[in-house]
Amino acid sequence: MNVFRFLGDLSHLVAIVILLLKIWKTRSCSGISGRSQILFAIVFTTRYLDLFSNFISVYNTSMKIVYITCSYATVYLIYGKFKATYDFNHDTFRIEFLLVPSAILAFLVNHDFSPLEILWTFSIYLESVAILPQLFLVSKTGEAETITSHYLFALGSYRLLYLLNWLWRYFSQGFYDLIALLSGILQTVLYCDFFYLYISKVLKGKKLSLPA
């Protein structure tokens, strides 16, 4: 495992933990898209179906368990414990517009037409666009709390670091996976606008607010 891959995983973990802590400490999930969190729970579930059949390392297995557990915990906090603070009115992105095309594409473009492989491919496609309901929510309310911005920055950095990891693996091992690569590029591109706002505003101590 190279440093980019490790930093990517770390960044992903930090994002997930920031979100959980934010909701837990403030006892509120306002400004957070429950729909994006449902999509992430689906992503982890369909990707890590090989949890018990495909052992890579203790590190891999533990990270998978942590990601899955945290994503379900987040969904529970939003739709269960802190439901009263959830922003139903603004979180209106139609997730079937992401789920259905991802599923169709996974059937059409995959490495192997087998159930596990199709579900893995589906999870890769879905992950690349799963943040859209969250970005939609931010654009609808026109602002994001600073802690939510940190969450989005860590989550966006994760796939960017994976892109560097794939570049590294291509040159050092000749390894590449076009499905993951192209989806990873799309996923990172979706964050570009946000990255710009984060660097130009949040890092200078200002709250992230969008021009009216």
Binding site: R5, N60, W120, Y162, Q173, F175
Partner: peptide, 10 residues
């Protein structure tokens, strides 16, 4: 294209 049979990434 080299595809690792066992997926080793997260």
């Amino acid at each position: 294209q080299v595809i690792l049979k066992k997926k080793d990434e997260l």
